[in-house]
């Protein structure tokens, strides 16, 4: 289950991003999981719950947003329906994944003593 390593990678990024702000009181982490990112949202959430206290983020809530896969023709840009043959119906161009392939930390909400 690679979700545990990914959760540790998430906390590594959070550690670095919040370091200049002098607080570890993260309230919300917003993470985007693409349908073809190779990550199971439920397992990711379970791994998050299992790891957050050891990483010092006991009060952090995880907000997961899933992103559908969108395939487009690399030549003409026409959308190619996921699940169909990955060639463009109009120009026979090759498909490329336009969205839904990534696992992204979008936003951190942090509580600080004084700004």
């Amino acid at each position: 289950m690679h979700e545990v390593s990914l959760v540790h990678a998430l906390f590594d990024q959070v550690d670095r991003a919040i370091a200049p702000h002098g607080s570890k009181a993260v309230r919300i982490l917003k993470v985007r999981i693409g349908d073809l990112a190779g990550v199971d949202a439920e397992l990711f959430a379970t791994a998050f719950d299992g790891c957050r206290s050891e990483r010092g983020y006991v009060a952090a809530a995880l907000e997961l947003v899933t992103e559908p896969a969108v395939w487009r023709c690399a030549e003409c840009g026409a959308e190619i329906v996921a699940g169909s043959v990955l060639r463009c119906r109009s120009c026979d161009g090759e498909a490329r994944l336009a969205a839904g392939g990534d696992l992204i930390l979008d936003r951190i909400e942090l509580e600080v003593a004084d700004v």
Binding site: A9, A17, S23, I104, I108, E109, L110, V112
Partner: peptide, 26 residues
């Protein structure tokens, strides 16, 4: 200060990251 939702809470900082969790590996 929080300027995401407009609440203006002075104790809330919002950091926009938009980075892949695999960026260290990459």
């Amino acid at each position: 200060m929080c300027d995401v939702c407009g609440c203006g809470d002075p104790h809330k900082v919002t950091l926009e990251v938009h980075a892949s969790l695999l960026s260290d590996n990459d």
